[in-house]
């Protein structure tokens, strides 16, 4: 493995690691979500004995995105490593 291939490998591993760290940081959800349910209860709601839930726009990084990025990175890294291989001259 030459110097360029090592750099490609390191970058590939770093991208995959960051992707998994992001996934864990976002709560380890299986599917990526763009909305989250938030419970709300006003003073009047309390008197009426009810609780409401509303959708709030938010982004939650899921395992699906993590796996897609991992796949793309592995394929791209593999191609780069193949292209940057030492060509033997006979």
């Amino acid at each position: 493995m030459n110097r360029v291939q090592k750099q490609v490998l390191l970058v590939t591993i770093a991208i995959i690691a960051v992707s998994f760290l992001l996934w864990i940081a976002y709560g380890g959800e299986i599917f990526t979500k763009y909305k989250m349910l938030v419970e709300t209860q006003s003073e009047l709601d309390k008197q009426l004995g009810i609780t409401n839930k509303e959708w709030v726009d938010t982004f939650i990084w899921g395992l699906d995105y993590t796996l897609i990025i991992t796949g793309i990175t592995v394929v791209a890294g593999g191609i780069m490593m193949f292209l940057k291989r030492d060509k033997q001259t006979s």
């Binding site: 959800e29 299986i30 599917f31 349910l37 839930k53 509303e54 959708w55």
Partner: peptide, 8 residues
């Protein structure tokens, strides 16, 4: 089996 579903 994969996750909980909440809906409104």
């Amino acid at each position: 089996p994969l996750e909980d579903i909440n809906g409104t």
